[in-house]
Design a protein around this nucleic acid. Structure first.
Ligand SMILES: [Mn+2]
Ligand SMILES: [Mn+2]
Ligand SMILES: [Zn+2]
Ligand SMILES: [Zn+2]
Lengths: 121, 121
DNA sequence: AATCTTAATTAGAATAATTCAAAAATCACC
DNA sequence: GGTGATTTTTGAATTATTCTAATTAAGATT
């Protein structure tokens, strides 16, 4: 854990907005004006490799980063543009919904949903 | 439907390997040597816009294209590198597994799985 | 058939997220 | 405090995709 990695990680822990590498760069710059974008990419890669952070991809958009380690899916709200974490119901197992061939092993799963959330007025 | 679009679409109908734009380009060139990569991108975009073809994204890899219009998810086999279409079980509804907020509307959903399929020996 | 109209294709340049390479800085340990 | 390993920094390279401008093709109209 270097200073820069701690800074990037700390930001992701308190910012659940699923920022892009560039978002992270701009925000970390407030506290470390000399940090470079390449370092942010390096830090994010290190955090992802060590399993502290998830890299989240939406279509061909820039990758976003998420420090929520709970298994969850991503809901992309078309109205606000915001991304929300959605958890599975207790006991839900995705294997129960799919016609997977006998003996298939799942390493990793990514579910993203696009839609509208009810406005909070 | 232009000649080029028909050619690209025909290829995708008979090739379920989820080829990239570049894969499509190389294969269509056999039958239309003068076609350009930009045209392949244009044709794919037109087919996607008109709902005949799905654009499939895996992490940050190049987009792949799929003419299977049945609702399905993608299983990326780590051993072979191949992508397989997996269907939902009858009556399965993803909303039943998720803690979605009251009133959320789903426009679109994408589920990709990475794992190992049993080898077919 | 010749002309007009519109949309599609082509070739090549531009874009933008990400990665890479080399040099400078930092760190860990003796 | 020196030495080797790791990280950061800067700036250049990469690469999938998009854009631009010019050309071609396809239909419709005379
Ligand atoms: Mn963002
Ligand atoms: Mn391919
Ligand atoms: Zn998340
Ligand atoms: Zn498919």
């Amino acid at each position: 854990m270097t200073k820069q990695r701690r800074e990037v990680y700390g930001l992701l822990l308190e910012d659940a907005s699923h920022p892009t590498a560039n978002d992270v760069f701009r925000k970390v710059q407030d506290r470390m004006p000399q940090i470079s974008l390449a370092t942010v990419y390096n830090c994010l890669e290190a955090l992802v490799t060590h399993g502290l952070v998830n890299q989240v991809n939406f279509d061909r958009e820039p990758s976003r980063y998420c420090a929520n380690l709970q298994e969850h899916v991503h809901f992309h709200d078309e109205a606000s543009g915001r991304i929300h974490d959605i958890e599975f119901k207790d006991g839900a197992d995705i294997m129960d919904f799919l016609n997977l061939p006998e003996g298939a092993e799942i390493t990793e799963m990514e579910l993203t949903i696009r839609g509208k959330l009810p406005s909070r007025d």
